[in-house]
Amino acid sequence: MTVFHKYVRTILEQGAVEAQRDGSAAIEAHHLLLAIASVEGTDAHRVLVSAGLDRAAIRAALDREFAHSLASAGVSAAAFGLPPASPGPKPAADMGASARLAFERGFKYGAPRSLRPAHVLLGILQAQFGTVPRALALAGVDRDGLAAAVRQELADETA
């Protein structure tokens, strides 16, 4: 098994677990981001942690985004005391549109056989719309600066 296949399988498996925790039927980009933050020892994990974005910080940002989205529709999450999501009966097997697009964008940064965690992270960070960009903006994260740090990490690794 190549490093590429091992990494992709690990991220997809962890992304499926994250989707299951959220009660989601499909793996989306935010599940991949949580998965990347959970897999220690990768270039992408190092960049995220150095920016203060461990798994807990990303989960908190996603929770803020959810509450903010509800508030935009005039609904207060705090007023209703919503219970946490009910985990699905089994890990999600399908990739949603945002996850597929993240991988497609990631392939632009690295050849398919040499795709690394940082390439997938770049694919996630390049999204202009969706849950991840809104969550990171609400958390005060400079996505362009974070993407530049990822590109630098990739350059350092290949030099």
Rank of each mutant, 00 (worst) to 15 (best):
L82D: 03
F107H: 11
A35T: 02
G110S: 08
G110N: 05
S50P: 01
V132M: 03
A93G: 14
K90D: 14
G145Q: 09
Q14M: 12
T158E: 15
T10N: 15
A135W: 00
L138Q: 07
D94R: 13
R105P: 00
L138D: 06
Q128M: 02
K90E: 15
G74W: 04
E18S: 06
Y109W: 13
L136W: 10
S114F: 09
T2S: 14
V141E: 08
L48F: 05
L146T: 10
A78F: 07
G88A: 15
G88D: 09
Q126E: 14
A35H: 01
T158G: 12
Q14Y: 04
G23S: 02
D142G: 05
A85G: 00
L101D: 11
I124C: 04
R113G: 09
A51W: 14
R143A: 12
G15E: 02
Q128E: 11
S114M: 08
Y7L: 14
I124K: 02
T10H: 13
H119P: 00
R21H: 11
S76K: 10
R116G: 04
F107R: 14
A99K: 01
V47Q: 00
G23Q: 06
A44F: 02
A60S: 14
Q152C: 03
A118E: 15
E65P: 05
A78N: 09
E157I: 08
